[in-house]
Write a protein that binds this DNA or RNA. Structure first.
Lengths: 182, 182
DNA sequence: GTTATTCTAGAACATCTGCTAAAGAATGAG
DNA sequence: CTCATTCTTTAGCAGATGTTCTAGAATAAC
C-alpha cells in the first residue's frame, strides 16, 4: 500500500535508550538523537510523534529488554533470595562501568521535580517492588527497593564498587540467615 | 571605593538552590534563575562568572545550610545511632513533600553520564559516608549511604512514605539490636 | 504502468539558550 | 565636589532547541 520503514525499530529504540540513559531527557537533543539512531528528524517525528514519544518508547524498551531481561537472567521465580543477590551484584558489572545508569532511577530523579511524574516511572518501580515483595516481607522488600535505587545512584556517581559489592553480600548473608516468610 | 551589592547573597543562593533542586542544572535557564533570584542576568554573570559558577555556589550552599544543618539538627556526634535514625526519618518530612529532592543525589544522577563528574558531588557523598562510618562498621555504613540515596530517589518519585518510614524504623531497630562496633 | 499512500531528506521557522557589551546609577576615597 | 570603581539594567547576539513543511523516493494494490 505504501512505502515501508527502512530502519530496524528495535535497534533505533536501543540507540535512543542509550542516549537517554547517558544524558537524561532534557539535555539530549533531537540532533543528538539523529546521530544516535541514524534517523533524520523528519522520520523521528513521523514515527514517534515528538521527542516525548520517542522517550516513552525508549523507556518501555528499557523496561522490557533491560530490566525484565536482567530479572529473567539473574532472578527467575525459582531462584529465590539467591537470585535477588545475583541481581544486585549484576548492577556492579554493567558494560560501561554503570555510568550509563538506570533509565528508571534517572527518570525518577529528572522528572521528580515536575508536576507530572510519568506513570511509567512508577510502574517500573512497581515491577521491582513486586519482585522483592514475592520473596520477602514488606519492610524488607521496601528496603531492597531503596537499596537498589541507592546503589544505582552511587554506581553512576563513581562510588567504590568493591565496597558496594561487599555490602550487598553482607546484606544478603543476613537476609538468608534469618527465618523469612513472604 | 565603588558601588555595593544590593542583594543578599545568602537569599540569592537559597533561591538558586531551590530552582536547581527542582529542575536540575541543565533544564533551569538563566531566565528562570533571574525570576527565582530577583537578579538580572548581568548581575548573575558579574557575581558568579557563569551559570556553572552559580550552580557551584548554590551546591556549596546546599551542603553547608541544608545537609550539614540537617546533620547538626538530627544527628550530632553524641546522638549515636538514634541520631542517624532521626536523620533518615527527617527525609520523609521535608517542607514540600520532598519532591524538591536532594541536590547531591540529583546532581550525582544528572552529571553521572558526563565525563567530568564534579568533585563536589563526591565530596558531599563523602560527608555522609564519614558520618555513618563513625558510628557503624564499614559494610553497614555503606548500606546506609545507599539506603539514604535510594530513599531520596523514591521520595522524589512520590513513593509511599509510610512504607519507607516503617522500613527505616525496622532497619534501625535491627541495627541497634546488634552488637556494633565502629 | 498507474496511483494512492507512506516514508525519507533537507531546509526552514520561531523560540529559547547562555552569554556579552554598553550605558546608567550608586558608592566611597581624595 | 570629583572621580575612579563597581554594581545594575537593558538590549541584543550567535547558536541551539523542538518542530514543521515541502519535495522527493519507495512501495504495493489495481
Amino acid at each position: 500500500m505504501a512505502r515501508v520503514c527502512e530502519f530496524d525499530p528495535s535497534a533505533v529504540l536501543t540507540s535512543a535508550m542509550e542516549a537517554f540513559r547517558r544524558g537524561g531527557f532534557e539535555s539530549v537533543s533531537i540532533r543528538t538523537l539523529e546521530d544516535a539512531t541514524g534517523l533524520k528528524a523528519g522520520s523521528i517525528y513521523n514515527s514517534f510523534g515528538d521527542k516525548q514519544g520517542l522517550f516513552r518508547a525508549a523507556f518501555a524498551h528499557y523496561v522490557e529488554h533491560v530490566l525484565r531481561a536482567r530479572i529473567a537472567e539473574h532472578a527467575p521465580p525459582e531462584a529465590g533470595l539467591a537470585g535477588l543477590r545475583a541481581l544486585f551484584i549484576s548492577l556492579m558489572y554493567e558494560p560501561d562501568d554503570g555510568t550509563l545508569g538506570c533509565l528508571i532511577t534517572n527518570s525518577a530523579v529528572e522528572f521528580g521535580g515536575s508536576d507530572a511524574q510519568p506513570a511509567a516511572v512508577h510502574a517500573a518501580l512497581e515491577i521491582l517492588a513486586d519482585l522483592f515483595g514475592q520473596r520477602l516481607p514488606a519492610t524488607q522488600s521496601v528496603k531492597l527497593l531503596a537499596l537498589y535505587q541507592g546503589i544505582l545512584v552511587l554506581v553512576r556517581a563513581g562510588w567504590n564498587k568493591p565496597a558496594l559489592e561487599a555490602m550487598v553480600q553482607a546484606e544478603f548473608d543476613q537476609l538468608e540467615g534469618e527465618p523469612n516468610v513472604a
